[in-house]
Amino acid sequence: MQFQFNSSEPIYRQIAEQIEDAIASNGFEEGTQIPSTNEISKEFHINPATVLKGMNIVSAKNLIEKRRGLGMFVAPGARERILNEKRDHFFEQFVVGLVKEARNLNISEAELLELIKRGYER
């Protein structure tokens, strides 16, 4: 597990995001167990209540599920749903900023499309 925390966002939200990222990248595969609240808490010196809050965000989206007496497991179809959600946010999150920056740099629409093409060819 490779979590990185910064100070610009609440820790519980970062925990939720990083668990989702790990599921999306297949770091946590579907059907497998993810680290427990205590394990994350102990490893990164984060208050157990904070970790739990982050976990609850993820489990509220039914991306992870509790198996009685065993722990939390990645739910079936979780990866696909996270990827869909990320696709939904792709435009807002990346394209808007990309276009804004391109305008600042006087890059035309055609030039930008060309650059994107180049990016795909790499």
Partner: peptide, 10 residues
């Protein structure tokens, strides 16, 4: 120590 503190706390 911090890990043990959390362990003991949980």
């Amino acid at each position: 120590f911090y890990s043990e503190l959390i362990d003991s706390f949980t």
